[in-house]
């Protein structure tokens, strides 16, 4: 099964130009931000390389607190979203129940609803339910928008799941419970994991919904950054942003790292030099 190698035509010049322009527009701001985080300008206007902004950012206790808040919110909302998302995905993919189609559509709504609407409605809901704004409300809010992503990744995994694998496990004496933990779970685990990483990334990056549902004194990192720039852009913020960029990039890389295929092995795996086999027995 050799893939065909056919020479493809190179794109027209105009297309290359537009592409280059787009990329520049996208990445120059990032480049500037990262560069500025390393630049120190003295009173004479001379610039020099420095790690100072990083030291300051890391040493700032209010930033530390915000980071801690972000991590806690990230971990708990990821756990919640993963648990809910995985079970919902299993229910939607494996079972049939009245109103399934509606549920199916509803799980995707958080992806479409404008964030500001989501943020406002959550805020109103929390107020109605008299849930005090703080860590818990942020976690709940994050779960509502991130569990859709878990559902999607887990369902993709379940959709190309070979059913006969579970039947084989049952056939070999595994109870339904054991079948799930020995066969189903290990095989959908990559889907759950990428869903979880995505949920964490979303939670860690979220500003708007957190801003609305945070209340006083429970700022996450993005909210904290926002309140800091009200007092002027400090190079410290550049340094911090660069760190967040780095962390997020690492997480995203983990989500999209090459996955081991779970499909039942294809039949055309090539050669077999079959040993003299059972001729001896016959």
């Amino acid at each position: 099964m050799a893939t065909e190698h056919r020479a493809r035509p190179s794109p027209p010049f105009f297309a290359s130009l537009v592409t280059a322009g787009t990329f520049l527009l996208l990445y120059i701001p990032l480049f500037v931000l990262v560069t500025y985080s390393f630049v120190q300008t003295d009173l004479d206007g001379n610039s020099s390389f420095t790690w100072n902004w990083y030291y300051e950012a890391v040493a700032d206790s209010s930033l530390q607190q915000a980071l801690w808040m972000s991590l806690m919110v990230g971990v708990w909302s990821t756990l919640g979203a993963t648990l809910l998302g995985t079970t919902a995905a299993l229910a939607l993919e494996r079972t049939d129940f009245p109103g399934k189609k509606i549920f199916d559509a509803l799980t995707l709504v958080p992806l479409i609803v404008p964030e500001i609407v989501m943020a406002l409605s959550l805020l109103i809901w929390f107020v109605i339910l008299k849930i005090s704004l703080g860590g818990i409300s942020i976690v709940l809010a994050h779960i509502t928008f991130s569990f859709s992503y878990v559902i999607i990744t887990v369902r993709t995994r379940l959709a190309d799941f070979d059913h006969s694998l579970e039947e084989a496990a049952r056939d070999l004496g595994a109870t339904p419970w054991k079948t799930f933990w020995k066969v189903t779970f290990p095989l959908i685990w990559p889907g759950i994991l990428s869903g979880a990483l995505m949920a964490f990334t979303l939670s860690f990056d979220d500003f708007l919904i957190t801003f609305f549902t945070a209340g006083v004194g429970s700022d996450t990192l993005p909210v904290k950054l926002y309140s800091m720039i009200k007092f002027g852009i400090s190079p410290k913020i550049n340094a911090l942003s660069t760190l967040i960029l780095l962390a997020t990039a690492l997480l995203v890389l983990m989500i999209f790292r090459p996955k081991r295929s779970m499909k039942t092995i294809s039949k055309e795996s090539g050669e077999t030099s079959v040993p003299d086999a059972l001729k001896a027995l016959g």
Binding site: D162, S164, E167, A168, M262, I265
Partner: peptide
């Protein structure tokens, strides 16, 4: 059972 596509656990 021996399944049609073997159903070996990958």
């Amino acid at each position: 059972t021996v399944f049609q596509r073997y159903a070996l656990f990958p």
